[in-house]
Design a protein around this nucleic acid. Structure first.
Lengths: 183, 183
DNA sequence: ACCTGAACACCGTTCAAGT
DNA sequence: ACCTGAACACCGTTCAAGT
């Protein structure tokens, strides 16, 4: 069901995600879905949780494989935007207004908290090695998050001019971000 | 109708914006609204256009009243986030996924383009006075936009931890943003 | 345990009919 | 010109009934 929901959003957009269509594609009646999820919000939340799990893995992987040094955080920024661009259906559900109502539960989930923690961990490590300003790590993490989230949202919502390459903007953002927070 | 739509979103959330409720609050049948707007999207677009008009005015005003000098752009960043926080209903419609389908027309509107242009104008002026890196102004503007948009979206969607003050984060963002792009 | 089909209370939208 | 009321094709959700 979760996979089918993601495929449906990817193919037809988030507005086309209806329980009827999910059921139809799975060859089952719409009411049958209620045997597996409490309601539509629960299905959407499951997609969001899967997304946060994937994002967390992508961020940790980016940190792990990045060369140590002052630029080690850059990989996480690139990985974040790339995740959003490569998994727009997940990202839209994770941060869309549709989830705003029930966001408390999803935001409090281990998956979501851990994804953010991966960034905080990286910041603390870079501060320890003297590569980053000794600001409050959580505040700094929120700032970095806002930057990459802003780039991702503008890209996904088609708000960037057509001649602008997302990867190029992401690269520029990483450069200016780095200059702004480096020690 | 536009005012009533904004009031309704403000009071009940964007999901509660229905033509039936708007009509009911105006003491008129739902079908009567079609005499003034082609469909619901057209009403939503009108709210978005009003929002971009207000945002443009707020940005230009912030630039006009800011003290000249290297910090003159900071006021625009603060004004942007403040606009989003003070007019969440407008902002949500302007940048929400609901408008994504028809965003081409709204994004191409004078109101929207002018709001962005206000930022580009400020950047060019600051570069001329030697306060800013001589990067491509449009690219720089997109980066700054991403930063303030990211802060605004996280704040509006309730994604910030409860102990985080939006104004404080906006201030920190402005500081780090400035360091990253100053000459 | 899992599914179906009908029903209910909502949507946006259309259209003939009224003033 | 502007509005109404009924109708249509959609939603999510519930529930008695089936296997």
């Amino acid at each position: 069901m979760v996979d089918e929901a993601v495929r449906l959003i990817h193919a037809e957009g988030i507005a086309a995600l209806t329980l009827r269509e999910v059921g139809s594609r799975l060859g089952v009646s719409r009411s049958a879905l209620y045997r597996h999820f409490a309601d539509k919000d629960a299905l959407v939340a499951a997609v969001a949780l899967e997304g946060f799990r994937m994002l967390r893995a992508a961020l940790r992987e980016a940190w792990r494989t990045a060369a140590p040094g002052p630029r080690r955080l850059d990989g996480m920024g690139t990985a974040y935007v790339r995740f959003a661009v490569e998994h727009p259906s997940h990202y839209r559900v994770m941060f869309g207004a549709d989830l705003a109502a029930m966001s408390e539960t999803v935001a409090a989930s281990d998956e979501s908290v851990d994804a953010f923690q991966a960034l905080v961990d990286g910041i603390v490590a870079q501060q320890r090695d003297g590569h980053l300003r000794p600001d409050e790590p959580k505040q700094l993490a929120l700032y970095i998050w806002a930057v990459v989230h802003g780039v991702a949202m503008l890209a996904l919502d088609g708000r960037l001019p057509p001649d602008v390459d997302v990867a190029a903007l992401s690269g520029l953002a990483n450069e200016r971000l780095h200059t702004g927070i480096a020690r």
